[in-house]
Simulated scan of single mutants.
Amino acid sequence: MKQRILKMLKNSEDFISGEEISKEFHMTRAAIWKYINSLREDGYNIESVPSKGYKITSLPDILTLGEVEPYLSTNFIGRNIQYFDTIDSTNKRAKEIAFDENEGTVIISEEQTDGKGRLGRHWISPKGKGIWMSMILKPKVDPMKVSKITLLGAAAVYKALEDMNIKSQIKWPNDILIDGKKICGILTEMNCELNMINYVIMGIGINVNFDEEDIPMDLKDKATSIKVSQNKEINRKELLGNILNQFENLYIDFRDEKSISKTIEICRENSALIGKEVRIIKREETRVGKALDINEEGELVVEFEDGVIENVYSGEISVRGLNGYV
């Protein structure tokens, strides 16, 4: 009901009387007042004038469905958003509820206290300055194909930034870079039985409006934020909506087991690795080679120092530049 009242207020440029709201939703003035106060607690500035009613004067920078919906053109991705002010991990929460929720459900929080990246690395997630979200997916495909979803996510973030005239690159398989520094990481986790997928959780963390001082000293050489790179505040709601729109477009082909050549093309043409010397790190083993391509299976094609050309599967590996992060 709160969201319905909010939508009514947002659709009006003038005051809406309590009587009008009461008739529309068949509720008492006291109930209306309770919802208005709840919206104020969420950060909405709502002016209240006797004999005139209520009017929204400013909107909060929060990532609720009510705030993101104007930017959405999806059919199912992001149409159910579970929003938190703070949470330990959106991926953890998504896994707890995945069996009971519809595909496309998004868990998003203004802050994570225990966010994780690939290979168990800690992910810094300060309040109100990023996009920290996890998406519940239930594709009926071979579990061996699930790693491709990470590339779908990377391509979607790239295209969403492009929609906002922000140039980035994709560091295969799961990072987005601006000016050679990381601004986004993607973590995909799966629950399956034999050849049947129960669910896939794709977590995306984006450093959107970090200030320079928000970036730890030991990460300044390899991490940045969109705000720092563009020297301006970024509309998080617009960016989130763009990502969900772009992802659904790419995901439908994957889910329907059609070619994902569009995704591969985006990742290939905007790769931060192709043509460069790279280190492929797996557990204690490090191999050096040159990244040649991303094949149609989404694997990184590498020519190693011994001349052997291999297709590298993302799995439990890390890719680094020969002399640094890229």
Rank of each mutant, 00 (worst) to 15 (best):
L6D: 06
E13R: 13
S22W: 01
F25A: 02
H26P: 00
A30F: 11
Y35R: 15
N37F: 06
E41L: 09
P50D: 04
K52M: 13
Y54R: 13
K55G: 02
K55D: 05
I56N: 07
S58E: 13
S58L: 09
T64D: 00
L72D: 04
S73V: 15
N75D: 13
N75I: 01
Q82Y: 13
Y83G: 04
F84D: 06
F84C: 12
D85H: 13
D85L: 09
T86H: 10
T86R: 14
I87Q: 04
D88I: 09
V106A: 10
Q112T: 03
R118P: 05
S125H: 08
S125N: 08
I131V: 12
I136C: 09
K138E: 05
K140P: 00
D142Q: 05
V146I: 08
K148L: 15
T150E: 06
T150H: 03
G153F: 11
A156D: 02
K167L: 13
I176G: 05
I178N: 08
K182L: 07
E189R: 10
G203D: 06
F210Q: 08
E213K: 14
I215G: 10
L219G: 11
K220E: 14
S225T: 04
K227E: 03
I234Y: 01
D253R: 12
R268D: 00
E269P: 02
S271R: 14
A272T: 11
L273V: 06
E277Y: 12
V278G: 00
L292V: 03
E296Y: 11
E297L: 14
V301Y: 08
E303W: 06
F304P: 09
F304S: 12
D306Y: 06
D306M: 02
G307W: 12
V308M: 11
S314Y: 12
G315C: 00
S318H: 07
